[in-house]
Amino acid sequence: MKRIVVLAKQVPDTANISGDAMKADGTVNRAALPAIFNPEDLNALEMALTVKDRIGAEVHVITMGPPKAVEILKHALYMGADYVGLITDRRFAAADTLATSYVLAAAIKKIGAVDLVLAGRQAIDGDTAQVGPQVADKIGFNQVTYVSALREVNDNYLIVERDGEVQTEVIKAAYPVLLTVCAEANTPRFPNCRRMLRFFRLDMNDNTGIIPVINMDDLALAEERCGLKGSPTRVHKIKSIMLKGGELKMYGTDVTDIRQLVRDIMKDYVEVG
């Protein structure tokens, strides 16, 4: 039976910025955004569960984040994950992708005997797509990024399609391997009602032990490689993007106005003849 680790992240829902999350100056109030399961990590989890359905597997879902990230681990349990782990420690705060991958790689090594690691292609808050490959590098796995379909899976290898921009690559990859999964690869299943009832009341570190909390010492990590200390990059400045108001010339919807609009376009932009 294969052992699969899915890397998941809780992210602010940057896509649905409602009125409540907008400040008066037109910038986004990040604290007011709802936190969600990173969409493409759901596709990674779905792929893990598909592999489990087809050939049998033990599916672990781990996340590094603040305590409230326990919400996505519960969601993973509802969908069918066998084991989850919340990797949390104040000393992990402000980690860039290098420091994050260091921690996640250690957690995967600690689980041990892992055949397959699945991650979403990218997270919607940072869009870097770097953590997956950087984990692969640290655990010494082969990787296939931009996986857009799972064609075949058996005990020895997977056959996947990779979106190579100008071409689709059909790749046979033996275990162990790390895949980063795109949204088009599958449709994540709904949470299972019975599992929801079973896991609904759980919290991290409760007496069931189903959602263990893992900290820096549990993973025997070097503090100088974690969090801000272990991050080569620094955020120097942040600017909220505001709509830039240009001079706007409005046209009416009268045919004469539209004719004027067409003339203006033609005059300036169309190379006639």
Partner: peptide, 23 residues
């Protein structure tokens, strides 16, 4: 930041233990 660059650059940054800023 192509599907090739975004595949390989993070591996190299990880190996060189340096910073990589995407997009």
């Amino acid at each position: 930041a192509t599907h090739t660059g975004r595949d390989v650059a993070p591996l190299i940054a990880s190996s060189l233990k340096t910073g990589l800023t995407a997009d």
